[in-house]
């Protein structure tokens, strides 16, 4: 028997959030955490969480499992359960809409700030803007981000200043466009990042690296941005 402790909060009926303990027979199988949630939802349909692709591509079921952020759909019980107990909480630091569903507005706002699209002021070529294989290689480890928010909501600097610090996810994307040979707005982008909060709130805690379900390294990207700012500023 697995004891699942779920964070429950329905703002329409509950005065405050509480933890609900449910016993579940997994039949000895090493299920994914999302499967466990589906089984629980079959018993109690009021449990709310986000999900879509169920294979770690859409990034919608980011949550805190036994204290660590991750995607429920690709986290097997064997990886997270200790002493037969699974504690499920919403991603930390964001307002809870209901149960495991959080309001990601501020996270997307930070993403929007870095202008996550190509800016190029030269006339568009007839077919496409070309890159050498080496230039393309620079985007590896950056473009794969699925915006699940596991990293930013594990980052203490983002908890303290979610409105000012862009956070690991947004900064990884900022670097993705700074590193793109087809983007011509590098200087403008850097000018936007040179304040004491946007980038420099990163204190190198590396929680972001520890939790990213895609194995990406936002800390390294932030280091590259810092280097670019240093080159530009000295």
């Amino acid at each position: 028997m697995l004891t699942v402790s779920i964070y429950r909060y329905n703002p329409e009926t509950d005065a405050e959030p509480y933890m609900q303990d449910v016993q579940l027979d997994t039949g000895g199988k090493d299920l994914m955490v999302l499967d466990v949630l589906e089984l629980l939802k079959a018993k109690d349909e009021t449990i709310a969480y986000r999900r879509s692709c169920r294979e770690g591509v859409c990034g919608s079921d980011g949550m805190n499992m036994n204290g660590k952020n991750g995607l429920a759909c690709i986290t097997p019980l064997s990886e997270t359960v200790k002493n037969n107990k699974l504690v499920l909480r919403p991603l930390p630091g964001l307002p809870v809409v209901r149960d495991l569903v959080v309001d990601m507005a501020i996270f997307y706002k930070q993403y929007e700030k870095v202008k996550p699209y190509l800016l190029n002021d030269s006339p568009a070529p007839a077919i496409e803007r070309l890159q050498t294989p080496e230039e393309r290689e620079k985007l590896d480890g950056l473009y794969e981000c699925i915006l699940c928010a596991c990293c930013s909501t594990a980052c203490p600097s983002f908890w303290w200043n979610p409105d000012k610090f862009i956070g690991p996810s947004g900064l990884l994307q900022a670097y993705r466009f700074l590193a793109d040979s087809r983007d011509t707005a590098t200087q403008e982008r850097l000018a936007e990042l040179d304040d004491p909060f946007s980038v420099f709130r990163c204190r190198g805690i590396m929680n972001c690296v520890a939790v990213c379900p895609k194995g990406l390294n936002p800390t390294r990207a932030i280091g590259h941005i810092r280097e670019m700012l240093l080159h530009r500023g000295t």
Binding site: P196, F197, F200, L230
Partner: peptide, 18 residues
């Protein structure tokens, strides 16, 4: 760009270097 007038050098980079 987030502005702040009470930081040491007004720029994140200069504070970081300092």
């Amino acid at each position: 760009m987030v502005t702040n007038v009470t930081s040491f050098g007004r720029s994140g980079l200069s504070d970081w270097v300092v």
